[in-house]
């Protein structure tokens, strides 16, 4: 394989603040049993890439815990494999992908890699992009830097020669170009820029709005089947949850449900993560309930995003809207009285 992959997990997404207080955007839970980075990492390994550098900035404990040494993606290798390369906080918090100041901190990684080309990507795009195909297009076009786009929307993933990337890293201060994305946007220099048209499913998740929409998209069979392809599986950290229990009196329609949950109430148009408990006479409509949440009896929830470990007291009514879903932060305890 001629590609080394770089996942830039330092990019800040202000629109997702409620979900990134304690974690990097890369480890935001998505689709019931995944974290956002799973899609990027799976695309990388499904494209045959065996060497991956993950560049996170603080807080990255949750991300580190999730990917470990990369075993779930078959990246725990003696040769190549996964490299976890944290970036010091002083230069993080950038807004564009492939920031040179961040990458520069691990210059050795780029110098020691053997691959001729590098793909620089982010961890907030959910897609089934094939980087091998993108590389072919890059080589054919003779471009110096190729950007992936989908229906005119930039996917903020780039392929270039590793030697060119090293050149960028050495000269960026002098040239006043601060990231790969910056370089592509400005198109100032004498380089040739190419475009790779990606045609499959994709969602760029950079706000609560896009997070909610992309989640609800998964309830539509065509979109879901375009994202979950049997021949290109999405890998994630394995948990030992038992199957989900649908108890007597429960009613579940148009829902995506992960393992380990116990459902006694009503769930419609919703995403339910692992080990969630939904008790009797409770209704969740257009909700995203993340792992280990407990929703007690007689609650009525609509358009609610509940982050991990949220507890909702019996009898609570919470109604958001499609435009403005209510976001409950990780570990929050929602008491009936407070909602009033």
């Amino acid at each position: 394989m001629k590609l080394v992959a770089i996942i830039d997990a330092t990019v800040k997404l202000p629109g997702l603040e409620d979900l990134t207080l304690y974690r990097s955007a890369a480890s935001i839970p998505f689709a019931g049993r995944y974290r956002l980075i799973d899609f990027t990492l799976s695309n990388i390994v499904n494209s045959g890439i065996t060497s991956v550098g993950v560049f996170p900035s603080y807080p990255f404990v949750s991300l580190m815990d999730h990917i470990g040494r990369g075993k779930s993606w078959d990246l725990d290798r003696r040769k190549d494999g996964l490299f976890f390369l944290p970036v010091s906080t002083k230069d993080s918090g950038q807004m564009s992908v492939g920031g040179f100041a961040a990458l520069e901190e691990h210059m050795v990684f780029f110098e020691r890699s053997r691959q001729e080309y590098a793909v620089i990507t982010n961890c907030f795009t959910v897609s089934q992009i094939d980087y091998e195909d993108m590389l072919e297009s890059h080589i054919e076009s003779g471009a110096d830097v190729t950007e992936a786009v989908s229906n005119g929307q930039p996917l903020r993933s780039y392929i270039l020669k590793r030697s060119l990337l090293i050149e960028f890293l050495k000269n960026y201060r002098q040239n006043q170009v601060f990231s790969v994305e910056d370089c592509v946007r400005r198109k100032k220099s004498s380089y040739k820029f190419g475009v790779y048209e990606y045609e499959g499913y994709c969602a760029v998740i950079d706000s609560i709005d896009s997070y909610f929409k992309a989640s609800m998209d998964l309830l539509e069979p065509e979109k879901r089947n375009a994202l979950f392809l049997p021949e290109r599986p999405i890998y994630t950290k394995v948990k030992d949850e038992p199957p989900t229990r649908y108890m007597k009196g429960s009613s579940v329609k148009r829902a995506l449900v992960a393992n380990g949950s116990t459902i006694r109430g009503t769930v419609v148009d919703s995403i339910i993560s692992r080990a969630v408990v939904i008790k009797e006479n409770t209704k969740a409509d257009h909700c995203i309930i993340m792992q280990k949440c407990t929703i007690e009896e007689n609650c009525d929830l609509a358009y609610v995003i509940a982050d991990k470990n949220v507890f909702i007291e019996a009898g609570t009514v919470l109604k958001g809207t499609a435009e403005e879903p209510i976001v409950l932060r990780k570990g929050e305890r929602i008491l009936k009285e407070e909602v009033r």
Binding site: R224, Y235, Y246, G249, V252, A258
Partner: peptide
């Protein structure tokens, strides 16, 4: 490594492990 389970409009589950 499999995606979550899906229950559609017409699905009906009572006392079931999935």
């Amino acid at each position: 490594q499999l995606p979550p389970q899906v229950v559609t409009e017409t699905g009906e589950l009572q006392e079931v492990f999935v």
